[in-house]
Design a protein around this nucleic acid. Sequence first.
DNA 1: CGGAACCTTGAGAGTAATCAACCCCCGTGG
DNA 2: CCACGGGGGTTGATTACTCTCAAGGTTCCG
Lengths: 254, 254
Amino acid sequence: MTGNLLTALRKPSMRHPVSRVFRPDPTTLLENTLISHKRGFGPGKILKLEGDLSSATYCMLDGWLALSKSMEDGQRQIIDFLLPGDIMNPTSANENTSAVQIEVLSYARVSIIPTGTWAGLLDQVPSLETRENHFIASALSRLSERMLRLGKGTAEMRVAYSLLELYLRLDAIGKADNCKLCLPLTQQQLGDFAGLSSVHVCRTMRRLAHRNILTAHGQMEIVIHDLDALAVAASVDLATLKSEIIPAPDINPC
Amino acid sequence: MTGNLLTALRKPSMRHPVSRVFRPDPTTLLENTLISHKRGFGPGKILKLEGDLSSATYCMLDGWLALSKSMEDGQRQIIDFLLPGDIMNPTSANENTSAVQIEVLSYARVSIIPTGTWAGLLDQVPSLETRENHFIASALSRLSERMLRLGKGTAEMRVAYSLLELYLRLDAIGKADNCKLCLPLTQQQLGDFAGLSSVHVCRTMRRLAHRNILTAHGQMEIVIHDLDALAVAASVDLATLKSEIIPAPDINPC
DNA sequence: CGGAACCTTGAGAGTAATCAACCCCCGTGG
DNA sequence: CCACGGGGGTTGATTACTCTCAAGGTTCCG
């Protein structure tokens, strides 16, 4: 009912039942907290504006959110996407405002947990802090990878990398069957993510399609035909990238 | 002897002695750990390459480090600078390799504390975890701010923003007297940070100088004459930026 | 004096943004 | 049923920005 997040949190103890004696499951507390803070939002809904008061941790149960920043002239950069299972606290260093705008891309179910409540949870659910740290490390790695390409990459690299990153993340949560991605994004939004105009995103994707690396239909239904060629275009080593940006619990299925 | 980091950690309890009974100071443990792991490195030294094994927290006592990523063709992006007082763990989501290259820019004294030891410290020094979280929030805010400009900003915005960010950070540790910054950087390195070629950094800074916004001499001794104009050029609200990227302990002296 | 590293400036080339037109799809309402 | 409008996607033409290449200039130091 609360989706991948709980599943993922349960896995470690299920995999190693010998490591713990049976006791009242702390994930029950987590589950109750997640459920009681769960809310649903439709596409286009703005959950937070930049600078809004915010001091909460977002636990993604389902759907997509975009974290973005804008300039006065309306230019926008998507800083990151939040996908099912992700945990993220967008509070900036001042402890009470959000550094980014938070927008719903596809119908999303999110548990928004106030910082105080979250701190209590961390005390009582030991695996949660570890998991949160994995997500922070993962987010930092992703941001670094993207900054490299924003600063020094060509349009092709940026688009190829963006698609690869999304592919790896979706694949990790079982949503990229056969290299097919369904992205709830317009080309404008993909451009805001990759640091390109929507027109140039279109041209670049067409070129990739023309080389039989991928095909796209309709509302961003993308099929990657040649993962290796896409990795070359993105200037990425796929295995390394995966290990660096996908949180550890999902990589080590023991 | 161990510099700003300890000073900063001590401040809270020193300011409010009434809030704690006297007891064996946990900062003694911290101090000992910092001292016993302290090392010094000269400019140019590479502490880690991308992908090197790494599982440690870096506590900056003095000097500058650069975290960077490179592409096969040698293009390089500086992801972040580490300045005195900063705490940072560059480990990627796989828990054992560094997501970035770590390079010394000016003679640096750093305590490099293995993850296990660090976890023990966190248990015993309550203020440390809070402080680490502030640094994480601060780093994420900075990265977001920079990504916005890498993706959508002009060369002028990028240079102006880079200088402003460094000004705010140096000012916060008392190293930006009278808007004068001494950056241990070449224009090439500033370009790697701002996502520009060294040639274009030069042109852009000259234009800013020509407008009497700043002057630069020698090895990047920069004096900002018109902070407001620089903030306009960077498309930044200075007070907001400061609150978002400078860790809270220096703002909320509670 | 010579060399090295860095900064400065100009000229030319290349990449991506912008502007503009058109297409397609789809939902709405006459 | 069809006319209409809106939101996206596609494509071409033009513009603008930034890179690269190249040639000095400066400072520092052996």
